[in-house]
Each structure stands twice: as structure tokens, then as C-alpha cells.
């Protein structure tokens, strides 16, 4: 069966979705990613959707699921490169993906993830800031 490749880059995982997903492919991506985070101890997931022209509520849910599951496994998810038409459509559909971080492109996504990771580590190691949520 066709699969979406997951690339490992240090503490980050990079997924580039090149095809329009049909349901089974999206579901297997969700499962594969969660496995991979667990196996590699990745702290961040970058999903590049710049080649995706349609995101419906099913795909949207998968993206939301991936973000939520990664969070439980202590990894942050950033979706990058969403096309304007897709963003407008998702909002109209009623799915603003509020739990998911976004960035304009892969480069900015990496930056965002790195800054989140350093912030988190500083908070863990640092002694001046004891306030946890």
C-alpha cells in the first residue's frame, strides 16, 4: 500500500503531503506518525501541506488528531504552507483548527518549533521561573 514518507531531522519529524489524501492514507499517516514519535522521541512534527488543494472535515480531523496525540507524547505539531483557498474554505466549513500551530513555510515552521522547544527546555532547566500551568 501507498504510504506517506516521514523524514527524521534531529529531534524533528518532517512529513510532506504530496498527494490529495484519501481516507485510508490519512488514517495510516496518523498511526505511523504516532508510532514514529514514540520510537524516535521526536519533540516536534512539521507537516507540509503546501501541495494539498483540498482539506475537508475528515482530513482536518486527522490533522487535529495528530496535533493532540503528539502533544500527549510531548511533541509540538506545526502545519506549514496552507494554501489561501484552503484556509478560507476551512474557516467557512467551521474548522479553524484552533489547537494546531501554523507557519507560512517549512523554514518558518522550523523556527517556530525550535523556539518552542528552547522555551520549554529553559522552563524545565531554569530556576527563576517556577510557575507551571
Amino acid at each position: 500500500m501507498e504510504k506517506i514518507p516521514i523524514l527524521r531531522m534531529g529531534r524533528l519529524l518532517l512529513v510532506t503531503i504530496q498527494v490529495d489524501l484519501y481516507d485510508r492514507l490519512a488514517e495510516s499517516l496518523e498511526a505511523d506518525l504516532v508510532q514514529m514519535i514514540n520510537k524516535t522521541g521526536a519533540r516536534g512534527v512539521l507537516i507540509d501541506i503546501s501541495a494539498v488543494s483540498i482539506i475537508d472535515s475528515f482530513m482536518g480531523r486527522i490533522i487535529g488528531n495528530i496535533a493532540a496525540m503528539s502533544k500527549i507524547l510531548d511533541a509540538e505539531t506545526v502545519v506549514v504552507g496552507m494554501q489561501p483557498a484552503v484556509a478560507i474554505t476551512l474557516v467557512e466549513l467551521g474548522l479553524p483548527l484552533s489547537g494546531v500551530f501554523s507557519a507560512l513555510n517549512v523554514e518558518k515552521g522550523m523556527e517556530l518549533l525550535r523556539s518552542k522547544l528552547t522555551n520549554m527546555e529553559r522552563n524545565v532547566d531554569g530556576s527563576d521561573d517556577g510557575s507551571a500551568e
Binding site: V80, M82, A87, I88, V91, S98, S102, L104
Partner: peptide, 12 residues
């Protein structure tokens, strides 16, 4: 609100 949501989805 829609405009803000769409902007955020783009990463801005």
C-alpha cells in the same frame, strides 16, 4: 473573526 482565523491558519 473568520478573517483572523484564516490568517492564523496560514501561519500569520
Amino acid at each position: 473573526i473568520k478573517t483572523v482565523s484564516a490568517t492564523r491558519l496560514m501561519g500569520a
